[in-house]
Design a protein around this nucleic acid. Structure first.
Length: 178
DNA sequence: GCAGTGATCATA
DNA sequence: ATGATCACTGCC
């Protein structure tokens, strides 16, 4: 049996240096931690989506390397944060080897359901784009408890990607504990 | 169901 | 420079 001992460990880049769908699934139950001027907020991640890489037509990197997608070509564990619909910041973490543009979108954590609401609650915006998930940036991820059942569904809001890629089951949701 | 909101990118 | 689009949300 495994008893958690000592301080929780912060996920390092090796965790993120794997395919986005693997990372997305394993992020469920991990703890998203935000440190804002000494105030610490810790929320269990409950919903993620994988954006697999340039071949994934729902992934921004499918449009090639642009000023915005440049960040996704960086090392695993880099924060990729972009603005959409004129209102909302989206929180992603770059996955896979450096130079391979893939990422995981964190859609929900704690009581905050919805990617825009999550970033607003944690004061996450473009200032964190390109930073790493670590203590220095004030945003990182720690180990969590074992998770129970996981729901796997198509991703939200990617109808533009065509029937194949919009249907792929790349959204991972933590089922409620019983 | 759909309007709001503004960055981003393709097109020119 | 212009226009379509958008990994969303909240209100109808």
């Amino acid at each position: 049996m495994s008893i958690e001992q000592g301080p929780p460990s912060i996920l390092r880049s090796v965790f993120f240096e794997r395919p986005a769908d693997v990372v997305a699934r394993e992020l469920l139950g991990k703890v998203l931690v935000r440190n804002i001027k000494g105030m610490r907020i810790a929320l269990t991640i409950s919903e993620t989506e994988a954006y697999l890489g340039p071949h994934d037509l729902a992934c921004h990197a499918a449009r090639g390397r642009t000023p915005r997608t440049e960040i996704m070509f960086g090392p695993p564990g880099t924060l990729y944060i972009y603005f959409v619909y004129g209102l909302h910041w989206m929180l992603n973490i770059v996955t896979g080897p450096k130079g391979y543009a893939a990422a995981v979108l964190i859609r929900a954590a704690g009581d905050f359901s919805g990617p825009g609401k999550l970033t607003r609650a944690l004061a996450i915006d473009g200032a964190l784009n390109g930073r790493r998930a670590n203590l220095r940036s004030g945003l990182w991820i720690e180990d969590g408890d074992r998770v129970g059942k996981v729901l796997v569904t198509p991703r939200i809001g990617v109808g533009y990607a065509g029937s194949h890629w919009s249907a792929r089951k790349l959204r991972f949701v933590l089922a409620l504990a019983r």
